[in-house]
């Protein structure tokens, strides 16, 4: 029973990837295919950030350790989709036109903050192994708090790129803030019971 859990979650996490691949190969992306891929992968990155952030609150409310066991994998999927998103922009949209890309990263705040979020994911990926968790001890937890900043950056990125109404990006921001607040309370409760 246990052994099928992780591969099952892994397969579920790949579903968005299969959907977008299917759409690309069957030409089902509509009039602006490149934008469609960018939006799809960008939104799934943000969704995976939200899912990953929900794992420890879920553990607390349900008392299943299962959630914590899949947390690392979910975190790696954040990086997976963020990288697909970045590659869509760099390779498919701007065709490695570095001067234009660098110009955008430096001058356009929504690209800048998205890029910053992606860069911040790298140390988390590099230190995601069991070995690293043991080696870094306390610092591992501290380092992995970066995900909160990444989450905020990701939703700001979405707000800044929107032309007028911020309905959808604001919903993500509210979800993320809510998930962060859950944690703050959690710590307070612990310190009081100590």
């Amino acid at each position: 029973m246990k052994s099928i859990f992780k591969p099952g979650v892994f397969t579920l996490c790949l579903i968005p990837f299969f959907i977008i691949t299917y759409k690309i190969f069957l030409n089902k992306l509509g009039p602006e295919p490149v934008k469609e891929i960018t939006h799809f992968t960008g939104e799934w990155t943000l969704i995976f950030i939200c899912i990953t952030l929900s794992m420890s609150p879920l553990k607390r409310f349900t008392n299943f350790t299962f959630w914590i066991k899949i947390r690392r994998m979910l975190g790696l999927f954040v990086f997976f989709y963020a990288t697909l998103h970045l590659l869509t922009y760099v390779v498919i949209d701007y065709r490695l036109d570095w001067s234009q890309i660098i110009d955008d990263v430096v001058k356009k705040k929504f690209i800048f903050i998205g890029f910053a979020a992606w860069l911040l994911l790298i140390p988390l990926v590099l230190t995601s192994s069991q070995k690293m968790i043991i080696a870094l001890k306390h610092n591992w937890k501290r380092l992995h708090k970066l995900i909160y900043i990444i989450a905020i950056f990701g939703s700001l990125h979405f707000i800044w790129l929107s032309k007028t109404i911020y309905f959808k990006p604001l919903i993500y921001l509210i979800i993320i803030i809510f998930l962060l607040i859950l944690r703050i309370n959690f710590k307070r409760i612990i310190s009081k019971t100590r």
């Binding site: 602006e32 490149v34 234009q100 955008d104 356009k108 929504f110």
Partner: peptide
Amino acid sequence: RWSQATERVIG
């Protein structure tokens, strides 16, 4: 917030 140097051709 974004560049106007290039454009995508619809279709």
